[in-house]
């Protein structure tokens, strides 16, 4: 199968069940909301070393306080991990950011206390306010007002987590870094237009894809040698002679439909660049992930 003479390899991406939360950060203007949101999403590329995968989903249209807001999606392996990350990230990145406030913006099956723990920073001067119950929030949304030097920090008591899909991916293979990077940028642009989706790596792109295992006993994963052009002759390479660069787009999504749409749009965008030879995907033989995303089906 080909798109614009770019081969779509007959393989599949393997995605995993994760838990996701959507955090809405508001502030006095878009700039300060983005300052806070980008810090929350910082160092959130992979659950392996960062604790969660995080990315900015986009600007929020209608926020509870009517101020500019930014939605952040965070993904982790369990709701407990997510709670831990939200505590750290909201406490250190939103509470510290001038004029910011923080709201839950996703209804899910798991609920955990975040603002209700951060409140102790108020040293006894924190104040709780609760809205009346609604169908979405049968107990009523409860907020904590924590006095801070810049005024007061408003944070929702509980956040929710929903089951989600993480680790969707495709590899862009080409003749050199320029066309492959250009194709990656176009792919990420397309992916980020899809709602409920993030590409958590820097600029949405990964250059250091990994394989399971290593020759070193203390490492569980190491560089994906089959796709490293530098060692093509020394390994069992999956690259052709003219293929000199591979970049990966990793996608997390709130549901499999959004994941498929993001994969579709991203692959089509990547295939529009000259110099891209193939689109492939990373998997573990289909043994580890709950979701199999067949490239030929998705495009």
């Amino acid at each position: 199968m080909q798109i614009n003479e770019v081969e779509i390899v007959d393989t599949f991406a393997e995605a995993f069940k994760m838990y996701a939360s959507r955090v809405l950060v508001t502030a006095i203007n878009e700039e300060w909301a983005m300052h806070s949101a980008s810090t929350v999403a910082g160092f959130g590329t992979s659950v392996i070393m960062c604790g969660c995968e995080a990315g900015i989903e986009g600007a929020a249209e209608d926020t509870p306080d009517g101020r500019p807001g930014v939605n952040i999606l965070l993904f982790a392996n369990s709701a407990k991990d997510l709670r831990d990350q939200l505590m750290r990230r909201i406490g250190q990145c939103v509470m510290t950011s001038p004029t910011s406030a923080c709201f839950n913006n996703l209804l899910g099956e798991k609920e955990f206390v975040v603002g209700g723990q951060l409140r102790y920073f108020g040293d006894g001067f924190q104040i709780s306010k609760r809205l009346n119950p609604t169908s979405e929030y049968p107990k009523g949304r409860r907020f904590w007002r924590i006095p801070v030097m810049g005024g007061e920090f408003l944070c929702e008591e509980t956040f929710q987590a929903a089951k989600a899909v993480g680790g969707g991916n495709f590899l862009i293979i080409g003749t050199g870094i320029k066309p492959v990077l250009s194709a990656s940028e176009k792919a990420v642009q397309a992916v980020r237009k899809v709602p409920n989706v993030i590409a958590p790596f820097p600029g949405g792109v990964v250059r250091s894809g990994s394989k399971v295992g290593s020759r070193y006993k203390f490492l569980t994963a190491s560089t994906n040698t089959a796709y490293c052009p530098m060692v093509k002759s020394q390994t069992q390479s999956d690259l052709a002679e003219e293929e000199n660069c591979v970049l990966e787009i990793v996608i997390d999504a709130l549901d499999i439909e959004s994941m498929n749409k993001a994969m579709h749009d991203g692959i089509h965008a990547a295939c529009s660049v000259n110099g891209v030879t193939r689109i492939s995907a990373g998997n573990y033989g289909g043994n580890l992930g709950k979701f199999i995303i067949n490239l030929k089906e998705v495009v």
Binding site: D65, R67, L131, R145, G151, E152, L154
Partner: peptide, 13 residues
Amino acid sequence: EYNPTWLRVFLRE
């Protein structure tokens, strides 16, 4: 004297 965020939320509700 300030603009309380919680009141913004309540008034909008």
